[in-house]
Write a protein that binds this DNA or RNA. Structure first.
Lengths: 213, 213
DNA sequence: GTATAATATGACCGCCAGTCAGTAAGTGAC
DNA sequence: GTCACTTACTGACTGGCGGTCATATTATAC
């Protein structure tokens, strides 16, 4: 009875089609402007069907966020793996730049990530899904933690808690990216994203270095 | 014709009453859960009246945000003015701690601030109101910039762009506060807000100091 | 070919932000 | 006091949307 398998495959494909449609619609019109009917129309499916595959509008968004996280993680992993021979500081730079790059090439996914910790999202998706997303983002952070740890072992960095330092670094980058995402803010600070990003990274990494250096 | 004055006064009071009701309702039930009818009921006014005083639900929220910003600015100004004799680094600590303190004692206002740069808000309030909010937040940043500048002049800090450094510092604090606002994140990082905040500040300030130190 | 299960549909519901025709209260002139 | 007029307020109503469910359609099994 291979029928069941085929069924499962078709079901999965349908789900992907809906997700694809949602990606297009949400990214084109913005989550709040987009309606579930829009998604249904784009997916060539009735609205009811959407709800056979996802619990809610927010849940669809959450799955898109997971996609984005997977993408980011892949890029970070690549950056992490590719430069084992470099100094920890240089590798942190690469990781950070990968993140910056991601935020620029996939602004929609990035926006989703930044929105995740906030408000409704948390309340409107299932606990498992929520935790899944959190887990993924922790994985990204672990790459940073590992690198910091290696930097400490190599005597490059002077700090006693790599986890905390990694967290601080991560929070800092998020802070900069969010702050600078707003054109009017950039204008008022009269700085562009890249220089600000560079300066902030330099500042924090300087703080991380051994005093000797 | 003092009548007009009284009229204006009454109008202003009504407005304040609505704002007061909105503050209570929004903070109690959350912005999205709360309805305009709730606010109207609490203000003992019909829904229509609400819309005589505010353009939209979001606009009410924006005015609450302005309140919060005023409160924060007052506290920052106080902290800034009170410790002129201390070192720039110590004064940055005080400013940062004031901010941390604000985020804990007025979590609702703080949440509003963090939400401000994101999504709908920007799209759903008037351009003037939007810019007004931005201006206020820039004022807060200016206190930091001033302090950094003084630190440079005093030879405490080694950096060439106080504005950028202040921006970096500000972004960093925001990043930490947002990241650590989520209980599950704290759990996963196994750090509490305060230690993380301290560690991050220490890290950045270390980066700011003259190498000599 | 028929019984059964799996999928899909779209009219419908409840909710809510925002509107507007209508009402009430206040004001100034005489 | 009352009339004309302005200002302030009201709440029933509208349109739009997320989500549901009774019904229809299609596939499968025997």
């Amino acid at each position: 009875m291979a029928t069941n398998e085929r069924r499962a495959r078709e079901k999965a494909r349908r789900r992907q089609e809906i997700l694809q449609a949602a990606r297009e619609v949400f990214f084109e019109r913005g989550f709040h402007q987009a309606t579930v009917d829009d998604v249904a129309f784009r997916a060539e499916v009735s609205k009811g069907t959407i709800y056979l595959y996802f619990e809610s509008k927010e849940s669809i968004l959450a799955h898109l966020l997971l996609e984005g996280l997977a993408l980011l993680l892949a890029q970070l992993n690549e950056a992490y793996a590719a430069h084992q021979s470099l100094s920890a500081e240089e590798r942190l730079w690469r990781l950070a730049r990968t993140y910056l790059d991601f935020s620029q090439t996939h602004p929609n996914y990035f926006r989703l990530m930044m929105a995740f910790d906030r408000g409704r999202f948390r309340e409107q998706i299932s606990a498992e899904l929520y935790e899944q997303i959190l887990q993924q983002s922790i994985r990204a952070l672990d790459l940073v933690t590992q690198t910091v740890r290696q930097g400490i072992q190599a005597g490059e960095f002077a700090c006693d808690d790599p986890k905390m330092s990694a967290g601080a670094l991560w929070a800092t980058l998020n802070g900069v990216l969010v702050l600078m995402a707003n054109p009017l803010r950039r204008q008022m600070l009269s700085v562009e994203l890249e220089p600000m990003f560079e300066a902030t990274m330099a500042l924090v990494l300087r703080g991380l270095r051994r005093a000797a250096n």
